[in-house]
Design a binder for these strands. Sequence first.
DNA 1: ATCGTTTATGAAAACGTTTTCAGCGGATGA
DNA 2: TCATCCGCTGAAAACGTTTTCATAAACGAT
Lengths: 345, 345
Amino acid sequence: MSQKATIHDVAHHARVSVSSVSRALNNYPHVSEALKTRVVEAAEELDYQPAFLAHSLRRGETNSIGFLVGSIANPVISTIYEAAAEALATNGYAVTLVSSRNQADLDSACLRLLASRQVSGLIVSSASESPQPSRRFIQETNIPTVMLDREPVAGERVFAVQSDHASSIRKAVFHLVKKGHRHIGFIGGPRGFYPTQQRYRAYQEALAEARIPLRDELARFAAFTETDAFAEALLLMRNRPLPTALIVAGNIILIGALQALKDRQLAVGRDIALVACDDIHLTQLHRPAVTVIRRDLNLLGKTAARLLLQGIQNNGNRSDRVIKLPTQLVIRESSNFHCRDDSQG
Amino acid sequence: MSQKATIHDVAHHARVSVSSVSRALNNYPHVSEALKTRVVEAAEELDYQPAFLAHSLRRGETNSIGFLVGSIANPVISTIYEAAAEALATNGYAVTLVSSRNQADLDSACLRLLASRQVSGLIVSSASESPQPSRRFIQETNIPTVMLDREPVAGERVFAVQSDHASSIRKAVFHLVKKGHRHIGFIGGPRGFYPTQQRYRAYQEALAEARIPLRDELARFAAFTETDAFAEALLLMRNRPLPTALIVAGNIILIGALQALKDRQLAVGRDIALVACDDIHLTQLHRPAVTVIRRDLNLLGKTAARLLLQGIQNNGNRSDRVIKLPTQLVIRESSNFHCRDDSQG
DNA sequence: ATCGTTTATGAAAACGTTTTCAGCGGATGA
DNA sequence: TCATCCGCTGAAAACGTTTTCATAAACGAT
């Protein structure tokens, strides 16, 4: 009674064989009603819980999935995680979360750990993007994987759910241009980072389309820390003529950028227009409220979970390999004013 | 080669028995140097990784710990998690994270799930506090557990790491009183929530000590959602005379409170003084910057991990059962002005 | 030289399940 | 009536380790 009851105890208590207990409890066919009720009663009486380890060992499936993140302290990531984890939990999966602390070289070790735990699926929002060991690892092992906002590696069972960053960045640029801006800066995450790449390319293309000469020095790329973003933002602001608008690609980057603007005494929404990515509490409560490219993080997480479950069950049956979710531009006070650029006369 | 190599493959390849392989790889005594090198070479050659499930099943230990949170989207929680998880990872533990979505009635089910996965330890930052099923569950099962900022349940192997909320709340009250405030409001989380209890009691005691009559209607308690906090804050602000200062106990609550103040057109730092708990990005970047009770979340997480590992290894050897970490009051512009209360003349 | 002790190794049991295999009784079909 | 099949059940194998047990060789001490 103090120790855990095993299937043998149940079998003994119900005066049947262990195999019958297993069949009865797992709703196998060809088991008589009488035996089933007897077993169920015995199981309840002994408060029997199947031993997870033995079950998984025999079954060859852990019913748990691994989640790799750069940092769970990032509000965007944690929101996605929460949504995905809920969907997975309702399907009987537990998720073990591991963080690479935004160190690209740790990604592969984290994945290896997860794989050694024999997870039945992987959701990856890793730090590294370039064709690195971690990508090769995913390719080699055959674990069903969905990558979050990344270019999926080739593989029979790897999927991706992405956000359509480009179209909203384009809208943002055109919005700023319409407000009279001609010197628009850009700060993003690391160059190799997929979302940054998408946004930066869209930024360039939109500028070209608007026939605004590209000033390379107005684009900077920071690591995923406030301090680095702060430093890069300061560097960006040393250019002349000063940019009159700034597109900030990433919520951690935004923290650093705001600090830098404060530091340089540039008033957001008056001296400089600001467009950020991802609508977090800060962007709504900031005075002035900041224009933002919003996406449904909940949907993102849920979609990832759905895709992964399909990948696990369909066993390779083809469905959409990569799903692209929409984004939208939400214009707020930080950019909703006309540029009065005196440097251009 | 395509399938995973088992210990039998290694044994066969090295021409020894499986038991010898196990002993050699686990650094057991009484194994000859020759055999050891032979085994190690074979293992490397086959890229042998011990099967986690079989290992754990036999060993009776999973080397993984369960982490229960109300919501990982809460920045305070996620920061603590990141710190704890890192410490645990370096000790060879993986952590499976489960969120009760702030529903107290789900706590117990989450714990049951974790226990059924046979985790070797538990870190609990659950939603419920009162003597509920989840607490009883922790008590009954004998899994080493550390509770985060909670009153630990009685039990041989349960520990707690708490924050000294009280002393900083007292400081905050005295600080506000010194600035001339006599109508100080309080918004906290749910009444049964341990940190809320600590803070509220300290608030009451400090007011009494300052010989300020307690106005019950100036204290309100909200669920862990911005919308509820918003509603409660609005209700609070309908009292007359209006409070000239507000202590907000919780970062999610703060979001709602700020929205409410904005809604009522009350300027923080001029019309009303504000003190919040936990120093998040928002409190630093808000204009005006908001006074805050800060604590070292990293230390909190690391301490929890350390305590848990001790609890797992020492096997009941007594050490400090509950550790209380300090907090400090950081005064910023939101409260650093003198109250000009005209309702009192 | 003999005995007891230590070292080194292999065979087999154990962990707690699920699944395969085999057997039994009864029903079905010719 | 007999062969066949089907529903139901139990015995045993299997999953991949670790650990216990047994045994042979080496070794030190009397």
